[in-house]
Amino acid sequence: MTITHLQNAAAATLSEPKPVSAPLGEPVPAISYLDVERADQVETGIWEATPGRWARYVAEQEFCHFIAGHGTFTPEGGAPIAFKAGDAFMMSENTRGIWDIQETVRKTYVIIKR
């Protein structure tokens, strides 16, 4: 049995922020994270993004729970999904869309790798 415990996710130290790879205008958002690789095809961790917009491709299925901030995610061909601290959603594999962060967002996530 493997148990991953993300302690105090709201205040955990993350990686050095780096600009996103496909920004859509200014400001250019930066992301930072703490990834925990496991032996069971699951990745979990904490992710943070500063305000701005960018295109994103989500290759694997992902569940995320927002613990700070707010914004929207607009899946390709779909309506914007507004989220705020306390919300959660599940993205299917091969999801394409646009992140639009209005206030720095922090989330915990679980990615199911195949």
Rank of each mutant, 00 (worst) to 15 (best):
P23K: 01
E93D: 15
T72D: 13
I67N: 04
T95K: 03
F83Q: 05
I98H: 02
T50R: 02
T44S: 13
I112G: 11
R53V: 03
G77N: 10
A59I: 14
E60D: 12
G71A: 05
A85G: 14
T44A: 14
F66M: 12
V110R: 08
F89K: 07
A10Y: 00
L34C: 08
A30F: 12
Q102W: 06
R114P: 13
S32L: 11
R38G: 12
T108Y: 02
F66S: 00
T74R: 04
H5S: 13
M91S: 13
T108M: 08
P51A: 07
M90T: 13
R53C: 08
P17T: 12
E16D: 15
P17I: 12
I81S: 03
T74I: 03
V42E: 02
G52T: 06
T72P: 05
A85K: 11
A10C: 09
A9D: 06
A9Y: 04
T74V: 01
T104M: 07
M90N: 12
P23W: 00
W54A: 00
C64P: 00
A30R: 14
I98Q: 05
A9H: 08
E93L: 10
A10R: 10
D40E: 15
I67Q: 02
K18T: 15
S32F: 01
D35H: 09
R106W: 06
L34E: 06
F63E: 01
Y33P: 00
I31N: 07
P51Y: 05
T108P: 05
F83H: 01
S21L: 15
C64L: 13
Y33S: 10
E60C: 11
G77H: 06
L34M: 13
N8S: 12
C64K: 04
S21C: 12
P17D: 12
F83D: 03
D87I: 05
A30K: 12
P51I: 09
K113F: 15
R56W: 08
T50C: 11
V20I: 10
I81L: 14
R56G: 02
S21Q: 10
G52A: 07
D87R: 05
G69S: 08
M1Y: 09
T104G: 00
F66C: 09
H65L: 10
R56A: 13
V36T: 10
Y33T: 09
G78S: 12
T108N: 04
V110S: 04
E62P: 03
A82W: 05
E37A: 14
